[in-house]
Amino acid sequence: MISNELPNGTTEQDRLSRRDFLGTVGKTSVLATATLYSASSLAVLTSTRSGWAAEPQFLILRDADIKLFGALLPAVVQQANPKVDSQKFLQSLDSILAHADAETAQLIQQLVDLVTGALTRGAMTGSLFWDWPDFDVQTVNSILESWRESYFELPKTVYAVVTRLTATAWYMVPENQQITGYKGPPKKIVD
């Protein structure tokens, strides 16, 4: 019988292997890595348990996730109304990742690490010194376009994963659903 144990928390060894992986990516280059590993095989490079929440109100989201998805949100949903409630969006995203299989959440957070990590962010965004919260919507849009049109698999995968996740998490929030003209479900009364 094969053991299917997943670690409940992140061990020191996990952290080390995570650092090794990012170190390797940094030493070669992200794009070279992209040709070597498909997104799904990325998951087997480390055994990092996804998620240790940055804020008490989140189950899974870390600082890096909040930084990235917060920056992506305006570019992905192109909100006509500037009053974007990013807190509800982040809660929705957190809930989706917390309910997803551990391996799925882990893979997504590895992609987040790749595009936010100090060693790899430059290669993925073309900007060595600026970080995600510094980018304006046009810059984020250009980055997304470059991933989407990339010759390499990894940026294309990152594009597909992060845009879909952002749009899904945003449009699952009842208040945001009204932007589409959907009037919502009937009222449910439990008596």
Binding site: A75, V77, Q78, Q79, A167, T168, Y171, Q177, Y182
Partner: peptide, 20 residues
């Protein structure tokens, strides 16, 4: 709305136009 966003993927103007 969530299903439509999930199935479409993508970002920006095209997504927004479809969704609204």
């Amino acid at each position: 709305p969530g299903t439509y966003a999930t199935l479409q993927g993508g970002h920006g103007a095209v997504l927004h136009e479809s969704m609204t």
